[in-house]
Structures are given as structure tokens and as C-alpha cells.
Design a protein around this nucleic acid. Structure first.
Lengths: 131, 131
DNA sequence: TCTGACACTTGTAAAACGCAAGTGACTTGG
DNA sequence: CCAAGTCACTTGCGTTTTACAAGTGTCAGA
């Protein structure tokens, strides 16, 4: 799965448009939802992601974690030795996607019927999100 | 193509998360690029979209235009009678996605090597984009 | 030793995508 | 009037990606 160049580095870009370039990395059905889980919902481990309300398939989950780690958006960090277990955190690059997600959430709240942003959504921590 | 409920109205949402809800509408490889074409690059007609640097397949293009129109993000407006021809414009809802795109573009410029936002990108017109 | 938790991996079917070619309405040049 | 061209799709079909279910390996704890 994911025939795209993973081992090496980034995927080849469709164009030099910044929007297209970003979508080449996270423009699919699940990636931004994982960024949300990690950055806004404080989920970090495989089972946490599976328990999200959207039920991502486990193979897709594994693939996306692998990909986004390769892209430099996530960092895989061990939290115990035996059995070896890892949790996923946002890199600076990944963290800086959070303002985009917030914008998107605001759009939904304003434009989609019955959508409310939960107050639970963790407020910005380190990153000043003035814009 | 696009077996998803189109005729009726919106697709069923994966969850009540605002981010997931938005991605249910535009969380694919092409939709946001079309929003970009229309809202930032002033493209409005089928051939304009095909001439974009990313070469979207014509059947996918037709499907996305149809879908996003059904979702209320685009408006199909006739510009001549014979032969009947239409051009696509953003609705208010669609236009309000532009700030999201700008955020994303800023992210790319800052975080992806060699990506520059072209000055050509039309500045915000009607919509005050203070945030 | 047995059971369960956890983090994946594998197999296979279903869906979406991408490419090339085709269609229909109409205009324009000859 | 007719042939050729433009435009906006549509169709067929092979490829790729997704999704769902089940399986695997490692290890802790009872």
C-alpha cells in the first residue's frame, strides 16, 4: 500500500502551487483528521486513533502514520521498551497545520447546518495563532 | 461515477466533527484546487480548469463541478445561449473557503522547500479576511 | 500457561481514479 | 451547404486506492 515514494522522502509535486503542494501531503480523507486527533484532541497512540468517532481502517491508519512521519509532519517516539511501543506527536511543521484546521472548523460551524465546534478542542498552546 | 448521494443533497457525514464534515465535502485531491482556480485564479470555465498546471482528468473535473455545485459551494451560471454554455462561480459558502486556502498556502510557503506564493494570487476582494 | 492488550499486517472485494476516445450542439471558413 | 473546429461533457475500461475482516507477533499479568 502507498506505492508513493515513502522510503526516500517527499512525493513528487503536481505543480509548484503552494496549495497543490500541501494537498499532495495531506489532501486525502484521513490525514488532517489524524493531525486533529494529535494536535487538538490529544490522542497519540494507535488505539486512541482507532477510538475516534470516524473509525479509520487500521491499515489506512498505519499507512497514514507512516507517510506523515516520512513527510516530517509527525514524529514517532517510543514510550516503553517491552513490548516496544510508540506514540505519535506533531513536529513543528505538523503543529503549524493546526491554524488551517481551525479555519476549516470555523468555516464548517458557519456554513454547515448542525455543526458546532466543541469547546473541548484544546486551545492553542505554544504556537501563537494570531492570524 | 460518484455514487454518493448527489441528486438529493449532502453526503452523510462521518461524524459531527466540524473538520471531518468539511473534509467530507472537499477532502479529496481536486476540490480545493478548483476552489482555488475559481476564487484566486479567476478561472471559471471548463477549458480554463483543464489548462491549470495540474491537468485534472476531464471526467473527474465534471464530477467535482457537479458535486460542489450540489453541495452549494459553486454556482453554475449560463453565459451564452447557443450553444448553451455555463461558467462556475463561488457561492458565499465557497468564497468563505478562500481564507482556509490562504492559510494552507502560507503553511506551504513556510514549510515546504521551494514553494512560493505567487503575487498573482488575487487579493481578497469582497470578503474581509481579518482572521 | 493462558488470556488479553496493543500495534500492526495480510487478503480480498469494492470504490475511486485516470486515461483515451467518443458524443452532441453549434460556429465558422471555404 | 458542407467540412472542420470548439467546447463541455460522457463513456469504457484498466489501474490504484480504500475498506473490511481476519490474522500475526510481542509481551504483561493472572
Amino acid at each position: 500500500m502507498s506505492k508513493q515514494k515513502l522510503a526516500d522522502g517527499l512525493p513528487s509535486r503536481r505543480s509548484d502551487c503552494p496549495i497543490a503542494a500541501a494537498l499532495d501531503l495531506v489532501g486525502d480523507k484521513w490525514s488532517l483528521l489524524l493531525i486533529r486527533d494529535i494536535g487538538l484532541l490529544d490522542k497519540h497512540r494507535n488505539k486512541d486513533f482507532q477510538s475516534a468517532s470516524e473509525a479509520i481502517p487500521s491499515n489506512i491508519l498505519a499507512d497514514r502514520l507512516k507517510r506523515m512521519t516520512a513527510y516530517g509532519l509527525l514524529e514517532k517516539r517510543p514510550y516503553q521498551d517491552r513490548p516496544p511501543r510508540y506514540e505519535y506527536h506533531l513536529t513543528r511543521q505538523g503543529r503549524e497545520l493546526l491554524p488551517v484546521l481551525r479555519k476549516l472548523a470555523l468555516w464548517s460551524e458557519k456554513n454547515l447546518a448542525g455543526v458546532k465546534i466543541p469547546r473541548a478542542a484544546k486551545a492553542p498552546t505554544q504556537d501563537r495563532d494570531v492570524d
